[in-house]
Amino acid sequence: MLEYLLAFLIIAGGAFTFIGSLGLARLRDFYSRLHGPTKATTLGVGCVLIASAVYFSRGEAASFHEILITLFLFITAPVSAHLMAKAALHLKLASLAERPEPRERD
């Protein structure tokens, strides 16, 4: 029974990760493509990690590394997306959305 649940989680995880990557190919501007890796992939990796944590916790000592991976992923993924968006704005990359007026900086 548990095997089926784990198999389902891994397949779902793979599917979401795939859709996230598919976004890179199908979306049309840089800013939209940023959404793929920060979101669709989070759930994909989440599913795989839950499956991994449950699988390796059977029998012997529980496995907690997956919790840490999730934590670090949640901290780092948005930061890298933010920095890439900031760099793209700075370089004035073409965008489908109307770009906001650049502000004066000191």
Binding site: P78, H82, A85
Partner: peptide, 16 residues
């Protein structure tokens, strides 16, 4: 961070 992780939004820049 929360905005980047949730519904279709990515935070892009904080004003000076």
């Amino acid at each position: 961070n929360t905005i980047s992780l949730t519904p279709g939004t990515v935070s892009a820049e904080l004003s000076p």
